[in-house]
């Protein structure tokens, strides 16, 4: 699942705004493939952890009601050059992590 996370982080007035998009199907479960009638099992991100300079600043727990290819934006205190790391874990045990520098 490498390369699934895009992060943009910029600082203004001591506040860092982070915007990120994770590529993930976020499958809810009951959906069926029309042609075959086969059910698509649920597949969604359960947990997202955000850290700044290797210290956790936010923990997010998600359910199936989060949209496909989840968008996540937030603001934290910080300055230019800080590193923002976002990592996620889904209900199948897949995970990914990405780091970006605050601009």
């Amino acid at each position: 699942m490498a390369g699934s996370i895009k992060i943009r982080a910029y600082e203004f007035d001591g506040e860092v705004t982070v915007k990120s998009i994770i590529s993930h199907p976020m499958e809810t479960g009951p959906r069926k493939i029309k042609k075959t009638g086969k059910k698509i099992p649920s597949h969604f991100i359960r947990e997202v952890i955000v850290s700044r300079n290797r210290k956790i600043v936010m923990e997010a727990f998600w359910g199936k009601s989060i949209s496909r290819n989840p968008f996540l934006s937030f603001q934290i205190p910080g300055r230019k050059g800080d590193t923002i790391t976002i990592s996620w874990l889904d209900n199948r045990g897949n995970s990914d992590s990405a780091t970006a520098k605050v601009r």
């Binding site: 727990f61 949209s67 934006s73 937030f74 603001q75």
Partner: peptide, 18 residues
Amino acid sequence: TAYFKLYESQSFVSTRIR
């Protein structure tokens, strides 16, 4: 739908929901 735990002085979160 979602639960965000904030560990620093944060007050803003944005996402997209179904």
